[in-house]
Lab assay of single mutants.
Amino acid sequence: VDYIVEYDYDAQHDDELTIRKGDIIKNVKKLEEEGWLEGELNGKRGMFPDNFVKEIK
């Protein structure tokens, strides 16, 4: 499942992704941690907030 970024987010920890509006995040999975998703961007896998992105259908 792929998501498109709607709002910029700067990573706060090493396991998070810095994302920018218009980025496409690939292979996204829901995490047990409420409010977070995990996906791949530019060869890096990491977490990001689910309210900054929208699923591409």
Rank of each mutant, 00 (worst) to 15 (best):
K30R: 08
K44L: 12
L17Q: 01
D15Q: 11
N51L: 04
I19E: 00
K44E: 10
I19T: 02
I24Y: 05
D2Q: 15
L31V: 14
R45E: 05
D23A: 13
I19S: 02
D50H: 13
N27Y: 14
D8G: 05
D23F: 11
E34M: 14
I4S: 10
L31Q: 11
F52H: 12
D15I: 11
I56T: 03
R20V: 09
I24S: 03
G43K: 09
N27D: 10
F52E: 04
E16K: 04
M47N: 12
R45K: 11
L17H: 06
L41I: 09
I25R: 00
W36A: 03
E38T: 10
R45S: 14
K29G: 12
L31M: 12
F48E: 01
R45L: 09
L37K: 05
G22F: 09
H13Y: 13
E33D: 13
K54M: 08
G46S: 02
R20H: 08
E16N: 03
L37G: 04
E33A: 14
G35S: 06
G35A: 05
L17N: 00
V28K: 01
I25E: 00
L17S: 01
Y3M: 05
P49W: 08
L17V: 02
Y7D: 15
R20I: 07
N27Q: 06
H13Q: 12
D50F: 10
Y7T: 14
K21H: 09
N42W: 13
D23G: 04
K30Y: 10
L31S: 08
Q12K: 13
L31A: 14
K44F: 11
V28W: 01
E38Q: 06
E55I: 06
D2K: 15
E32Q: 14
I4E: 11
D50S: 14
E6S: 04
Q12R: 09
V53S: 04
Y7Q: 14
W36R: 07
E34Y: 07
A11T: 03
D15V: 10
G39W: 00
Q12T: 09
F48P: 00
L37E: 01
L41H: 07
V1W: 04
V28N: 02
D15P: 12
V5Q: 01
G39T: 01
I19L: 15
K21I: 09
I24T: 04
E38P: 00
D8R: 05
N27M: 05
A11N: 05
I19N: 01
N27T: 08
Y3A: 14
V1T: 08
D15W: 11
N51R: 13
I24Q: 05
P49F: 09
Y3V: 14
K54T: 15
I4L: 10
I24L: 06
D2W: 15
G35D: 06
K44V: 06
I24D: 01
Y9H: 05
G22Y: 09
R45M: 07
Y3L: 02
D10S: 12
I56A: 03
G43R: 05
I25D: 00
I24K: 04
E16S: 04
Y9S: 03
T18K: 03
V1L: 07
E38H: 10
I4T: 04
L41F: 08
D23W: 12
F48G: 00
K29P: 01
V28Y: 02
K30N: 10
L31F: 10
G39A: 02
H13S: 14
G43S: 09
R20Q: 09
E55H: 02
G46N: 01
D14K: 13
I24R: 06
E33T: 12
K21V: 14
V28A: 13
K54E: 15
E6D: 03
V1A: 14
K26T: 14
K57T: 15
G22A: 05
K21P: 06
W36F: 12
G46W: 01
E33N: 10
D15R: 13
I4M: 09
D50E: 15
H13F: 08
F52I: 07
R45T: 09
K57E: 15
Q12S: 12
D15F: 12
P49M: 14
Y3P: 00
G43Y: 05
I56M: 06
L37A: 07
L41A: 06
V53N: 03
E33M: 11
P49V: 04
Y9P: 01
N42P: 02
I4K: 06
E38D: 13
I24G: 02
D23L: 07
G35F: 05
M47P: 06
D14E: 14
L17K: 01
D8K: 06
E33L: 13
E33P: 08
N27L: 13
R45D: 02
K26F: 10
N42H: 13
G35V: 03
K54V: 07
Y7W: 09
A11W: 02
K54H: 12
V1I: 10
E16Q: 13
K21L: 06
I4F: 11
E32R: 12
F48A: 03
N51Q: 12
Y9I: 01
D8Y: 07
I25G: 00
E33Q: 13
E33V: 13
K29H: 10
R45G: 03
K26L: 07
M47L: 08
E16I: 02
D8S: 07
R20D: 01
V1N: 12
K21G: 08
V1H: 10
G46Q: 01
G35Q: 05
I56D: 07
K57L: 15
K26Y: 14
E32V: 14
D23I: 04
L17T: 01
T18S: 09
Y3R: 03
I25L: 11
E6P: 02
W36P: 01
E40S: 12
D50M: 09
V28I: 04
I56Q: 05
E6H: 09
T18L: 03
M47Y: 07
E32S: 13
D10I: 13
L37H: 05
L17A: 01
E16L: 03
I4G: 10
V53P: 02
